[in-house]
Computed example of a mutant assay.
Amino acid sequence: MMRIYARVEHGAYVECITPVTYTADLEVVHAGAESRIGKEVPIVERFTPEMVSTLVDITDLNPAPKIGWLYDGEHFAVQVPFEESPEEILAANKLQMDKLLTRASSAMTPLLVALQLGDATIEETELARKWQSYCRSVKSVDLKVKAPAWPNLPAL
């Protein structure tokens, strides 16, 4: 039976090494000697010892591992996608909320000054209301969900 190998790098299956057969006898076949044509070229004749040390025979494994699977030195396993912890999700969402509120605060500052001084235009007053509504919407977002629906910036 011809052998199939997985090349493993940093604990992951990165390349499939399939069999190669002899296509010609390199030496003169002596009387009674068997031809090697069609037989598998041994893996140690195809690659350096360093490369061979990264190979794992997967010929008889069922199910056959696929490129990208993890290898722990004994077993292959499907790579499990990274999942953020609830604490990481909350921290990332708090950071995003802070960024959005900082942006809103920067936009609202000149509008609020105009309102306090009593010389805000109707447009500035309306825009200040939109930014305040936006801030309330940002603060009401559920920060525990992975991809919260952040409100859109106010139309300017």
Score class of each variant (00 low, 15 high):
Thr109His: 01
Ile89Gly: 01
Asp142Phe: 06
Ala104Arg: 02
His10Arg: 09
Leu117Tyr: 03
Leu117Phe: 06
Tyr13Asp: 00
Leu70His: 07
Glu34His: 07
Pro19Thr: 09
Ile89Thr: 13
Ser53Ala: 15
Thr121Val: 01
Ser85Tyr: 11
His30Ala: 15
Arg46Met: 11
Val56Cys: 04
Tyr13Gly: 00
His10Ala: 13
Ala91Arg: 14
Val14Leu: 02
Asp72Cys: 11
Pro49Met: 09
Lys146Gln: 15
Ala77Asp: 13
Glu45Ala: 06
Leu156Ala: 14
Arg36Asp: 04
Arg136Val: 14
Pro151Gln: 05
Met108His: 01
Asp119Thr: 12
Trp150His: 08
Val28His: 03
Ala120His: 01
Gly32Thr: 08
Leu61Val: 12
Ser53Cys: 08
Ala92Met: 11
Tyr71His: 08
Glu15Ser: 05
His10Phe: 05
Val56Lys: 02
Leu156Arg: 08
Ala12Met: 08
Ala12Arg: 07
Leu61Asn: 11
Phe76Glu: 07
Ser137Lys: 06
Gly38Ala: 07
Pro148Gly: 06
Ala12Phe: 03
Lys144Ser: 15
Met1Glu: 08
Pro49Trp: 08
Thr102Cys: 02
Ala91Met: 13
Ala147Ser: 14
Ile17Glu: 00
Ala128Cys: 02
Pro19Met: 03
Lys39Ser: 13
Leu112Cys: 00
Gly32Asp: 09
Glu88Thr: 14
Ile58Leu: 07
Val56Leu: 03
Ser140Asp: 14
Glu40Leu: 03
Ala24Ile: 13
Ile89Glu: 05
Leu61Cys: 09
Val8Thr: 03
Ala149Tyr: 04
Ala6Thr: 05
Thr18Trp: 03
Lys39Arg: 13
Met1Ser: 09
Ala128Tyr: 01
Glu74Trp: 08
Met97Thr: 13
Pro81Tyr: 11
Ala149Lys: 12
Ile37Lys: 07
Glu126Asn: 04
Ala147Thr: 15
Tyr134Phe: 10
Glu50Ser: 11
Lys66Val: 15
Leu156Asp: 11
Leu61Ile: 15
Leu55His: 04
Met108Lys: 01
Gly38Pro: 01
Thr109Ser: 04
Asp57Thr: 11
Asp60Ser: 12
Thr109Val: 06
Thr48Phe: 04
Asp72Phe: 10
Leu156Ser: 12
Thr102Ala: 10
Leu90Met: 14
Ala107Cys: 06
Val29Lys: 01
Leu101Ala: 02
Leu100Ser: 03
Thr125Tyr: 00
Leu143Asp: 04
Lys39Trp: 06
Asp72Gly: 10
Ala33Leu: 07
Asp60Pro: 00
Val138Gly: 02
Leu156Phe: 11
Asp142Pro: 02
Val138Cys: 02
Val145Met: 07
Pro86Arg: 12
Asn62Gln: 12
Ala149Pro: 02
Trp131Leu: 01
Val20Gly: 04
Ala149Ile: 14
Pro86His: 10
Leu111Pro: 00
Tyr13Phe: 15
Tyr13Ala: 00
Met108Arg: 02
Glu124His: 00
Asp98Glu: 15
Ala128Ser: 05
Leu90Ser: 10
Arg3Leu: 04
Ala33Asp: 13
Ser140Glu: 14
Pro81Trp: 10
Leu61Gln: 13
Asp60His: 08
Glu34Val: 15
Ala77Asn: 11
Ile43Asp: 01
Glu126Ala: 09
Gln79Gly: 12
Tyr71Val: 10
Ser140Thr: 15
Val145Asp: 05
Lys144Ile: 12
